[in-house]
């Protein structure tokens, strides 16, 4: 079987929604003359700035050049297990210049949703992700948050989560990846468990990570700019570029990380730009979008 790693697959309902989103995005693109000046750049981490423990050549310098321009920068990523602090520490080790408050992850998006709705979650996330939920009340839980938690995905815990959802607790998914790559092979992603719980309870999960539109609008919210004033750079055609463009942003696809030949043809409308790597994307922004 053919595997793209790690892969998201929007459910059928979403595919039905896609057309209207596509039309909306096309409208934004067709309306470029009315586009306001670029105010923000969202940047994916893994596969775009670095591949595992190696920085993309020239990426640190390119980031510094971008910072000297009059534009806000935010780092956005889908993670189910890494806290913002641990992401930042890894990037610091690779000599990237960034602060924790500039990182927005699928865990941040989940936290924001919990705060907005004042839910008390049962958190099925790995212990390493818990620090991003510090201060959230988890007593007498009334919502289920599913991340990736091999230690917690056992029969008892899933039965408990199931009973809560049946009693009316909302099901919140950090994201719906089918699987991810581990050193020793592929491993089941959170999407499998979310789908199982959806089937058992006949309900739909609220997904908070990329490529959801709300993920991008929330990431931009703190920067006080609208999607029409922002661009996203990433290596995942569907989740980074397609998601951002559906939200009304421009999307730039880089040919690093998980990029495979022809990925730019997998989304409609196509990426605003497809280029070799992050430094080229920055070059394009500095030359053409500011």
């Amino acid at each position: 079987m053919e595997l793209n790693i790690p892969q998201f697959d929007p459910d059928e309902e979403e595919q039905a929604n896609r057309k209207s989103r596509r039309e909306a995005a096309a409208e934004v693109q067709g309306n470029m003359s009315g586009r306001r000046a670029l105010k923000a750049v969202l940047i994916d981490l893994s596969g775009t700035l670095h591949i595992e423990d190696t920085a993309v050549p020239g990426a640190q310098e390119a980031l510094n050049r971008l910072r000297q321009a009059c534009v806000a920068v935010k780092f956005v990523t889908n993670t189910t297990k890494e806290s913002k602090r641990s992401l930042m520490e890894r990037l610091h080790r690779l000599n990237f210049n960034l602060q924790e408050k500039e990182i927005f992850t699928s865990l941040s998006a989940a936290r924001r949703l919990l705060e907005q709705k004042q839910h008390r979650p049962l958190l099925l996330v790995e212990d390493s992700a818990l620090e991003d939920f510090t201060g959230i009340d988890t007593s007498e839980p009334n919502a289920v948050v599913v991340g990736l938690a091999p230690d917690h995905f056992n029969y008892q815990t899933l039965n408990k989560a199931f009973s809560m959802i049946l009693d009316g607790a909302p099901l919140i998914a950090i994201h719906k990846a089918r699987y991810y790559k581990q050193k020793d092979g592929l491993a089941l992603g959170p999407g499998a468990f979310v789908t199982g719980l959806e089937y058992a309870t006949d309900c739909k999960a609220t997904v908070v990570g990329k490529p959801e539109k709300t993920f991008f609008t929330q990431a931009l919210h703190d920067l006080g700019c609208s999607p029409g004033e922002a661009v996203m750079i990433g290596d995942d055609a569907r989740d980074d570029v397609g998601g951002a463009q559906n939200a009304g942003m421009l999307g730039i696809l880089v040919r690093t990380g998980k990029y495979r030949d022809g990925d730019e043809n997998k989304i409609q409308p196509p990426p605003h730009l497809t280029c070799d790597s992050f430094p080229d994307a920055v070059e394009h922004i500095l030359k053409n979008l500011l």
Binding site: N159, F162, G196, E198
Partner: peptide, 23 residues
């Protein structure tokens, strides 16, 4: 989807079938 046991509801095989189907 699920069945009832004395100590509450338990997820049945269909749920895990769906999980593997999706993955």
């Amino acid at each position: 989807r699920y069945y009832k046991e004395t100590n509450g509801l338990s997820l049945d095989v269909g749920v895990y079938m769906k999980a593997l189907e999706y993955a």
